[in-house]
Write a protein that binds this DNA or RNA. Structure first.
Length: 140
DNA sequence: GCCAACGTTGGC
DNA sequence: GCCAACGTTGGC
């Protein structure tokens, strides 16, 4: 298998909270209607890891998910949009807030900071590892 | 192909 | 709840 990639996906907790992914184990990541986000979805490979970010109320990375099925046609539209299936991996022991991320130079180039409206973005491995470490979380 | 208007996201 | 930022649409 090729080298793993890392991504960040945003969800409003009132629409689809991480706790629901925990309960349901997998989810169809639909509703993406932005070209750059779509390109990122289509670049995802099975097994890639995702930072699960809660926008609005929480403004924090709250958990880790993974790609369980690569991009396919979004079933909620006949237009040319894609979805992936994501699977539950683990919560962060300590959520990593946007304020923390903004205050940390290690994240200066992160899309979350620089392109705040992009809902699916790529994450560098060192950024991913740093979120895990700030989140006091180790993946098995 | 430009760009103004519009709609949406998301931080505050 | 407001509004800035910015992606998308549509008129020309």
């Amino acid at each position: 298998m090729a080298t793993k990639a890392f991504w960040l996906v945003k969800s409003e907790p009132s629409v689809y909270p991480f706790e629901r992914l925990k309960k349901e184990k997998t989810a169809v990541w639909d509703g993406v209607r932005n070209f750059e986000a779509r390109r990122n979805l289509r670049a995802m490979k099975k097994g890639d890891l995702l930072l699960f970010y809660h926008s609005n109320e929480d403004k924090a990375v709250v958990g880790i998910a993974k790609v369980v099925k690569e991009a396919y046609q979004d079933p909620t539209t006949s237009d040319d949009w894609s979805v992936v299936d994501v699977g539950y991996v683990a919560p962060l022991e300590a959520p990593v807030t946007l304020a923390t991320i903004k205050a940390d130079k290690a994240f200066a180039d992160m899309a979350l900071v620089r392109k705040s409206r992009l809902s699916v973005s790529s994450v560098a491995e060192r950024e991913f590892e740093r979120v895990l470490s700030l989140g006091k979380t180790k993946l098995k």
